[in-house]
Design a protein around this nucleic acid. Sequence first.
DNA 1: TCGGCTATCGTTAGTTT
DNA 2: GAAACTAACGATAGCCG
Lengths: 174, 174
Amino acid sequence: MNNMMMKKKTTQGRKKIEIKKIDNLSNRQVTFSKRRVGLFKKASELCVLTGAEVAIIVHSLGKRVFAFGHPNIDAVINRYTTGSASSSSSSSSSSSVADPKIPLGAHEIQQHNRHYAKVSKELEVERKRKELIEGSKLENGGSFWWDDPIEHMGLEDLQQYKASLEELKKKLWL
Amino acid sequence: MNNMMMKKKTTQGRKKIEIKKIDNLSNRQVTFSKRRVGLFKKASELCVLTGAEVAIIVHSLGKRVFAFGHPNIDAVINRYTTGSASSSSSSSSSSSVADPKIPLGAHEIQQHNRHYAKVSKELEVERKRKELIEGSKLENGGSFWWDDPIEHMGLEDLQQYKASLEELKKKLWL
DNA sequence: TCGGCTATCGTTAGTTT
DNA sequence: GAAACTAACGATAGCCG
């Protein structure tokens, strides 16, 4: 048996934990501090690596507030609140978004959170798709290339045409 | 001959990287996506483990916006902007940790609410568009009719094909 | 309580499909 | 060109000073 008893285990090292609220207060506080630092570090790396702009606000159980921002937390928040793109406005939406001024029960808040997360994710996908479509449109002087008159195409043109359609399909649905 | 050097090394695994902007665009985008998800997961765990309230806003390269909030992103930002929780300190830590003292006006908060409504509205429009596209897809046994092999179409078929494309275009952009 | 330590767990860079 | 995979890297739970 080849046991290396020469090394004394000074600690047993990290253990797997389940992601649920930590009961012990002092452990919870320690974990909060460690993980808050870790979170900010991750955010910082994301900024540097990708050039993204990030703002984080953390409220501890007590009253303390910690914030991270790159390049500037207020600028990031402001840009978020004012929004950056697109056109139409008008009309309050019919979606199930609650007005934050109205106090909601915990259950309703959770519902809203889930909805918001879902909406954000889906909008991201849809916007990307929209951009791709618009990109295809603009590549041909403002009209759709797929609207070109195919009656007069030769077989070669048609094959190219089909290849383009397949490319579009990939971009749209992959 | 000898031992198991033949073990298939399918990947060489992760390599150490230096924290500086990634030059290659596509790598940068991939890293952004992966790390954004990782960051939000870390935030989520922090919330669950310690009961903290966290809001994160991420702007990717100017245009797209991603947000995370628990229990509610608006509430967390609001509390930050209004400073309803007395605070100060911050003491220590790394990074550019800002102190939440700069109040944003109610006007800006309302701007955010309008922005959210706008985004939701846009998503509705995009969803309808998506449904139309998917409807077109399903009409042909799960594949795209526009992906039919046009090389073998006769002129009549091609004209019908073009008409269908025009119909799709109308549905997409009306 | 805080900072430091370390074995282990979780994240992810590079690769493959 | 996204998604799955894998091994190396980085974060951290539990300990100790």
